[in-house]
Each structure stands twice: as C-alpha cells, then as structure tokens.
C-alpha cells in the first residue's frame, strides 16, 4: 500500500521580490518521517520553512507545495495551520499584547491542558506575559514548542529549535520534539512527519531522522543519512558537500554536451 505523503515539494523556486532565493527544491515527507536541512547561514533554510507555512514576503515563482496531495500555494497562513502544519519560529516576534493564555483561549484549547504542558516546559510563569516579550533565547524555544504541543500539527516544521539553548534545557527540548514526532509510538502508527532545520545537529540523537540535506545558495547540494551528513559537516564544514556538488554538476554538464 502506498501511503499518501504529508508534504510534497516539487521543483520549487522562490523569490523575494525579483531576487531568486530557492530553486529546484524537491522534498517529500511521509507520515513518521523527519527530514533534516543543514546549511550555512543565509543559504535559505528558514526561507524554505517559511515558504511552506506561507509567511510573506516569500513568493513561489514555479513548482508546487502539496499537503496530503493538495496544492496549498493559494492557502493563507492560517488555513495551512488549520490543515495541520505547525511551525516553531527561529526568531519569533514579540507580541506584547497577547499572552500564551490569551492565545490558547482564542484557539479554544482546554486551559488544564495549557497549564499541564506549560508546567512540563517550565513556562507556567510565562503564561500571562506578552508572547516572546523579553523572553530569553531558551524561553523563546520552549514557548515555540509549547505552542506546537498545544496545536498538535501533523506536519511539524522546526527552525533551529536548539539554537541559544543551554545544555540542561536541550534534554527537555529533545524529549518534547520526540513527543511531537510520536517517537513513543511504533513506526507504523506514526502519523506526524516534518522538517527540522538545524546548525548543530545536537537534537538529532535518538530521533532517527529519515534523510538529511545540505542547502547552499538556495539549492539542495547533497543529501544522505542525517547523522552522516552532520558528522561530515562537523569534520569538514560544508566543503565536501560543495565539492561533491560541483563534480555532480560537471558530470551533468558533460553528459548534456
């Protein structure tokens, strides 16, 4: 039986204004799968995640993004969220006049559930504060994951969930991420999949991510087992991948000629 993928990205090209940002992106995420995107600063990782969520100012110039087989390119952000796509922002904006409690109430989430999840993430004291207003880096990350826990998305998009987090908190975040991806369930019963953008790979342990990609200058340059790619990057930076990509391009050009 072929399972319907959660997410299919087909030959996607994205601009900001007239400036090309991403091109030739192909990625398929099935339920239970975690795909990991590595890449140097400014390579387009966050842009890719935000494009999937529909956040401006990214403009899709060609290709398609499908959620459960249906193109979502014309869907506004909230419609994508309601379909089951959830994003943990890398740098969430401060929303001083809206608290986590007020947001939870607006989303009609049970207050006991909010309280329990907040307690687990050590965010009880932040429930009635302005969202992200004066939050430390670690508090922002915990707040983002708390919101995703409450939202229960089917497609989880995590944009550098571990950056700026101390070692002690990392363990907690890892366990929450495992919960979001239903790592406590047998593989065949997992319905959630997603994409993790990371620099450090520190959260990949125990997650058994499906595939890793290196994004450079808006293109996937190489892919492979996530931990292998991470080890290579740790040892040699992105150089090996770039060299490999250049060789592939040359072979491609040669065959074309």
């Amino acid at each position: 039986m072929t399972e319907m993928p959660l997410l299919e990205i087909d030959d996607l090209a994205v601009n900001i204004g007239n400036e090309p940002l991403l091109s030739g992106i192909n990625l398929t995420v099935a339920p239970g799968e975690i795909h990991v995107v590595f890449g140097p600063n400014g390579s387009g990782k966050s842009s890719l995640i935000k494009t999937i969520m529909g956040i401006p100012p990214y403009r899709v110039t060609s290709g398609d993004i499908r959620f459960e087989g249906k193109s979502i390119l014309d869907f506004p952000i909230d419609a994508r969220a309601r379909l089951g796509i959830g994003l943990a922002f890398q740098q969430p904006p401060p929303v001083r006049d809206v608290s986590l409690s007020a947001l939870g109430k607006a989303l009609e989430i049970d207050t006991d559930r909010i309280a329990a999840e907040a307690a687990r993430l050590g965010m009880t004291g932040h429930l009635n504060r302005g969202l992200n207003d004066g939050f430390s880096g670690g508090e922002q990350k915990r707040s983002e994951l708390l919101q995703l826990l409450l939202q229960r998305p089917q497609l989880v998009l995590l944009d550098e969930p571990e950056s700026g987090v101390d070692v002690d908190s990392l363990k907690l975040l890892r366990s929450v991420i495992e919960q979001l991806f239903q790592r406590d369930r047998p593989i065949r019963e997992r319905t959630v999949g997603g994409i993790i953008v990371t620099h450090t790979g520190a959260i990949l342990e125990h997650l058994h991510a499906t595939r890793g990609y290196v994004l450079v200058n808006g293109k996937f340059m190489c892919s492979g087992a996530p931990l292998d790619i991470f080890d290579q990057i740790s040892a040699n930076g992105f150089g090996n991948c770039l060299a490999e990509a250049r060789i592939k391009e040359k072979i491609h050009d040669f065959l074309k000629e």
């Binding site: 309601r82 959830g86 929303v95």
Partner: peptide, 14 residues
C-alpha cells in the same frame, strides 16, 4: 505584520 503572521501560523484568521 509579523505579529499577525505569527498568530495566523497558530491557526487564527487575520
């Protein structure tokens, strides 16, 4: 706009 987008990403309409 970034505040609206953020809340919309949680499922609220604009």
């Amino acid at each position: 706009g970034d505040q609206l987008n953020y809340l919309m990403a949680r499922g609220l309409s604009e």
